[in-house]
Simulated assay, not measured.
Amino acid sequence: MKYRSVFDIIGPVMIGPSSSHTAGAARIGRIARSLFGRQPKWADISFYGSFAKTYRGHGTDVAIVGGLLDFDTFDERIINSVKIAKAAGMKIKFTEEDAVTDHPNTVRITTGDEKSELELVGISIGGGKVEIIELNGFELKLSGHHPAILVVHDDRFGAIAAVSKILAKHEINIGHMEVSRKEKGKQALMTIEVDQNIDDKVLKEVEQLQNITQVTKIVD
Score class of each variant (00 low, 15 high):
135 L>D: 06
60 T>A: 15
105 N>T: 04
93 K>V: 05
131 E>Q: 12
97 E>D: 03
86 K>E: 15
49 G>Q: 10
93 K>R: 12
124 S>K: 03
48 Y>S: 00
118 L>M: 11
67 G>W: 03
71 F>M: 15
89 G>Q: 06
131 E>I: 10
127 G>Y: 03
129 K>N: 13
98 D>V: 09
114 E>M: 13
115 K>P: 05
134 E>P: 01
114 E>R: 09
93 K>S: 13
76 E>G: 04
103 H>Y: 14
76 E>V: 12
82 V>Q: 04
53 K>W: 02
68 L>Y: 09
91 K>S: 13
94 F>K: 08
51 F>V: 03
105 N>Y: 15
62 V>D: 01
86 K>D: 05
108 R>M: 14
60 T>G: 14
103 H>D: 11
96 E>Q: 12
96 E>Y: 05
113 D>G: 14
90 M>I: 15
63 A>Q: 04
107 V>W: 00
134 E>I: 01
101 T>I: 00
113 D>R: 04
63 A>R: 09
116 S>T: 09
74 F>M: 13
75 D>E: 12
78 I>L: 15
125 I>D: 06
99 A>Y: 03
103 H>L: 12
98 D>Y: 07
134 E>H: 05
85 A>L: 00
67 G>K: 07
70 D>S: 15
120 L>C: 05
64 I>E: 06
99 A>N: 04
110 T>P: 02
61 D>C: 09
111 T>D: 04
75 D>V: 14
101 T>Y: 01
77 R>L: 03
125 I>V: 15
112 G>D: 10
120 L>Q: 04
115 K>Y: 11
130 V>K: 01
65 V>E: 02
105 N>R: 06
80 N>C: 00
106 T>C: 10
77 R>N: 10
50 S>D: 14
102 D>Y: 10
80 N>P: 00
122 G>P: 10
101 T>R: 12
73 T>P: 08
116 S>E: 12
